[in-house]
């Protein structure tokens, strides 16, 4: 890419000292004078660069270091070591010029005022970010229309459903038209319909405002639908950075062969072609090595009377799961 990166992380490390309490009353008494601390490497030597307008999926299991990285990028946490630049700023300097250009949305933490309608929080953000009246009206109208929340912005936040709240959280975060958006599990706890609405919105926002977005999510659907590029992190370390398709090429060892048989056959007859995952006449599903998938399909068509054959890639969820399982063995 010829453009300069908008986000750059070099050898980022963030370690926490965690107190391990011994269980029970005795443990509590002992902790009065002696406490055991353990160092947790939440982020351990991670480097990457993100360019303007990209949507990057940040994938990892619980505790992998995704949220910690986002918190460092947004200036909430000081890194233990490493260099970080976002929009040309050191995030933890917390310069107002930097803070006016990004937004952080956390699925598990609210910025909306619980006992007031979302509109009050919008007006507060308008004042805090010094958004001119005309620009505020225009942006708010557009966001309200895109997310279809006209009827709820004057209702107390605590009376809203999780999905409605999340929509309002997004509006509150975007009113100042940030150039960089950190989305930490924005679809957590939402039903599939609402997940789709938010994904469509994020995609539309990225296209319209050319915003750079980092998205962390447990739902691979979010990442698949929104991100061309993914960064996979495990135990605080980056294990993959590239196109989602490359994850499939690199880590998917098998393909899925789905068969519909004409004649009744023995289960054992199929097992010699690959790993039999399902067998319920007339349907059978085999896992076969990627490189040999076409050849094995041809053999099956020759050896049996097959009504239909289908070769598929495994789901991205399954590949990632496999990737993490292989990493677990390493650790």
């Amino acid at each position: 890419m010829s453009e300069a990166p908008i986000i750059s992380i070099q050898n980022l490390k963030k370690y926490f000292k965690v107190y391990r309490k011994k269980p029970g009353l005795l443990g509590s008494i002992q902790s009065l004078w002696s406490r055991e601390y353990e160092e947790v490497k939440a982020v351990d030597d991670v480097s990457f660069e993100i360019y303007p307008g990209e949507i990057v999926g940040f994938i990892g299991q619980n505790g992998a270091g995704k949220t910690t990285t986002l918190k460092v990028l947004s200036g909430l946490l000081y890194p233990t070591s490493g260099e970080v630049s976002v929009l040309g700023f050191n995030p933890w300097d917390r310069k107002p010029d930097f803070q006016r250009q990004f937004a952080l949305v956390m699925g598990q933490k609210n910025q909306l005022w619980w006992d007031l309608p979302a509109m009050e929080s919008f007006l507060l953000n308008k004042a805090i970010y010094e958004v001119p009246d005309a620009e505020f009206d225009k942006t708010l109208d557009k966001l309200v229309e895109l997310l279809d929340v006209k009827d709820i912005i004057n209702v107390q936040v605590r009376k809203l459903s999780l999905g409605q709240r999340m929509k309002c959280e997004l509006i509150a975060a975007l009113l100042h038209s940030p150039k960089v958006l950190f989305l930490d599990e924005p679809t957590i706890g939402l039903d599939v319909v609402m997940q789709k609405v938010l994904r469509d919105f994020i995609k539309a926002y990225n296209q319209e405002f050319k915003a750079t977005i980092i998205l962390t999510s447990h739902y691979m659907g979010d990442v698949k639908e929104l991100c061309k590029r993914a960064i996979v992190i495990d135990h605080g370390q980056k294990i993959f950075d590239g196109d989602l398709q490359d994850i499939i090429d690199q880590f998917a060892r098998n393909k899925i062969l789905s068969l519909i048989m004409n004649d009744k056959i023995n289960q054992k007859q199929l097992e010699k072609y690959g790993q039999l995952k399902e067998f319920e006449y007339p349907k059978a599903t085999l896992l076969v090595p990627r490189a040999k998938a076409a050849k094995i399909a041809g053999q099956l068509l020759t050896d049996f009377s097959v009504a239909d054959v289908n070769i598929e890639e495994p789901t991205i969820d399954a590949i990632i799961r496999e990737l993490f399982l292989s990493q677990k063995k390493v650790h």
């Binding site: 918190k71 947004s74 200036g75 909430l76 010029d97 952080l104 910025q111 805090i128």
Partner: peptide, 13 residues
């Protein structure tokens, strides 16, 4: 409880 995150990302100390 880490609930001051949103205050810390705003351009007012």
């Amino acid at each position: 409880e880490g609930k001051i995150d949103h205050y810390l990302t705003k351009p007012i100390s």
